[in-house]
Amino acid sequence: MKFTVELIIMNKEGVRDPEGETLQKYVAEKFTSKFLSTRVGKYLRFEVEGSSGEEVVELVKRLANERKLYNPLVHKIEVRVVGQDGGD
């Protein structure tokens, strides 16, 4: 089966995010004070072949770890399946 998997890379809580801070200060909170904070991350979307959701999530996590798609000291990742295609 073919799965669509998202990988979101964000700075960990407590690690500064100057891009988010700048957008918050100069754009979002100037738009309306209802915006309380802004964080910026990186978004990757994969189409992955596999037999189950758990399997492809694991595979994307392994890719992210082994190929240094993020720096675990600074970033956290979120991996989730957002779609799947029956396949045969």
């Binding site: 700075n11 960990k12 407590g14 690690v15 995010d17 801070e21 000291l73």
Partner: peptide, 14 residues
Amino acid sequence: EDEIGAVQIADPFA
């Protein structure tokens, strides 16, 4: 070990 405390994020705009 986890040296997170020592990591500083650069903000060249600031």
